[in-house]
Computed example of a mutant assay.
Amino acid sequence: MDSFYEKTLQTKTLYEGKVIQVDIEEVALPNGKTSTRELVRHPGAVAVIVYTDEDKLVLVEQYRKALEKTLIEIPAGKMEKGEAPLHTAERELVEETGYTADALEYIGSFYTSPGFADECVYLYEAQGVVKGEQNLDEDEFVNVIEVTLEEAEVLMAKEKIHDAKTCYAVQYLKMKQMQHRLT
Rank of each mutant, 00 (worst) to 15 (best):
E6W: 07
T8Y: 00
T8E: 05
L9E: 10
L14A: 08
L14F: 06
E16Y: 07
K18A: 14
V19Y: 00
V19I: 06
V19Q: 06
V22Y: 11
D23C: 13
E25L: 10
V27W: 05
A28P: 00
P30S: 12
N31D: 15
G32I: 00
T34Y: 02
T34S: 10
S35E: 04
S35Y: 01
T36K: 08
R37F: 01
H42I: 02
H42S: 07
P43V: 01
G44H: 04
V46C: 12
V48C: 15
I49A: 12
I49N: 14
Y51V: 00
T52W: 01
T52K: 12
D55A: 15
K56M: 11
V58Q: 10
L59Y: 07
V60S: 09
E61A: 15
Q62A: 14
Q62C: 13
Y63L: 13
R64F: 12
L71G: 05
L71R: 08
L71K: 07
E73S: 10
I74H: 07
P75H: 13
A76Y: 15
G77S: 08
G77M: 10
G77W: 12
K78T: 13
K78Q: 07
M79N: 03
E80R: 05
E83F: 01
E83M: 04
E83Q: 12
E90T: 12
E90L: 12
L93T: 14
V94Q: 10
V94W: 00
E95F: 12
E95G: 07
T97H: 11
G98W: 00
Y99S: 14
A101F: 15
A101Y: 15
A103D: 15
L104S: 08
E105N: 12
Y106C: 09
Y106W: 11
I107Y: 02
G108V: 08
F110A: 00
S113H: 13
S113F: 06
F116C: 02
D118G: 06
E119M: 05
C120T: 15
Y124V: 03
E125I: 08
Q127V: 09
V130K: 15
V130P: 10
K131N: 11
K131R: 15
E133M: 09
N135C: 11
D137F: 14
E138I: 05
V142R: 13
I145E: 05
E146I: 01
E146F: 03
E146K: 08
E146L: 04
T148F: 03
L149S: 05
E150H: 02
E151S: 01
E151K: 03
A152T: 00
E153H: 01
V154D: 07
M156N: 02
A157E: 11
K160D: 10
K160R: 09
D163C: 04
T166G: 14
A169Q: 09
Q171P: 01
Q171G: 08
K176G: 00
Q177W: 06
Q177M: 06
R181F: 06
L182Q: 14
L182C: 03
